[in-house]
């Protein structure tokens, strides 16, 4: 009796499985997973996963232990890559200035302390106020911000890709630079903030195109992803536990691959059995989801604030 029940439940399982993936009479000759209703359910599952995943930030212990974070960014790499780009354009190399480094570090720490991500602090403190506090006297200055990137390459690539950041990066007037890479928790998310300050010391006689003595280029910001607390370190380098971006990407990719395989299987069975049915074009859907999968794999994270 128990054997019969077991074989029945086994049959039920296989029937349900084939109902989901194989076109047959029970699903009107279209894999159940590909029905519009199932697609909507899948969308809700992805949405719920994303919402739950983001809710994890309200449990700091879990975030630190499970969703550790990795970034491999160093001031020397950022300096080298910035100078490589400047040299490519025939511009002078920038040199690191300790006071500007201190100002950049103070800005990054202020963002973590007051939990904001902007050029201007909630209390109205401006970017240049951090420079002034170090007694560094500048003629022109600029600021680039970045967060949520994994490597120095990505940070500089993002700055190069953004016109307003690029303007700062390749400003011929700047001669000195300050850098800070700080790990911490911003609004519930572990992240790495990068602050890059540019300046021309006021002792250097120089005028901008308009002829004024004082000029602050339009501030620019970029975005970043992940990490943990090591405020003030010159390098943010941590073992990966599992970054939140990679975790989300992997889950989404698995769902998209499942849909692609189901579409191919559905098309093959329908074609070999010569089913006459009125449904959407599997080939077009496969092309669309392959594109989505491709973008998921290539997506680097990080973004520039408007």
């Amino acid at each position: 009796m128990a054997k019969i029940r077991k074989s029945k439940s086994k049959r039920n399982f296989w029937f349900k499985l084939s109902h989901f993936f194989r076109p047959q009479a029970s699903n009107r000759y279209r894999s159940k997973l590909l029905h519009p209703q199932s697609m909507l359910v899948t969308s809700f599952i992805l949405l719920a996963f994303f919402a739950l995943f983001n809710a994890v930030r309200f449990f700091p212990n879990l975030t630190d232990k499970v969703l550790g974070f990795s970034s491999n960014i160093s001031t020397s790499d950022l300096l080298d890559k910035t100078n490589q780009e400047r040299q490519r354009l025939g511009l002078s190399k920038l040199v690191l200035n300790e006071e500007l480094n201190q100002a950049a570090l103070a800005k990054a720490q202020d963002m973590f302390n007051d939990q904001y991500w902007a050029h201007v602090a909630p209390d109205g403190k401006q970017a240049w106020d951090f420079i002034k506090e170090t007694d560094y006297s500048y003629k022109y200055a600029g600021e680039n911000l970045a967060r949520d990137f994994n490597t120095s390459d990505e940070v500089v690539e993002a700055w190069i890709a953004s016109p307003s950041h690029y303007e700062n990066l390749t400003n011929k007037d700047f001669t000195q630079m300050g850098l800070a890479i700080v790990n911490g928790n911003l609004k519930g998310f572990n992240t790495t903030l990068v602050v890059q300050l540019f300046a021309v010391p006021s002792s250097v006689a120089m005028k901008d195109q308009a002829g004024s003595d004082f000029y602050l280029p339009k501030a620019a910001e970029a975005t970043f992803h992940e990490n943990e607390l090591v405020a003030g370190e010159k390098t943010a380098n941590k073992e990966i536990v599992f970054s939140s971006l990679n975790f989300t990407k992997t889950f989404f990719l698995l769902v998209v691959l499942l849909i692609i395989l189901t579409l191919i299987y559905d098309a093959l069975i329908a074609s070999s059995r010569k089913y006459q049915r009125l449904v959407g074009q599997n080939f077009a859907h496969v092309a669309l989801f392959v594109t989505v999968a491709f973008l998921l794999v290539l997506f680097k994270g990080g973004s520039v604030l408007p």
């Binding site: 697609m39 969308s43 949405l47 994303f50 989505v292 998921l296 973004s303």
Partner: peptide, 14 residues
């Protein structure tokens, strides 16, 4: 539904 799913995946990841 297919378009919505594709958009959702990309929007959420960004």
């Amino acid at each position: 539904s297919v378009s919505m799913l594709a958009i959702l995946v990309i929007v959420l990841i960004t």
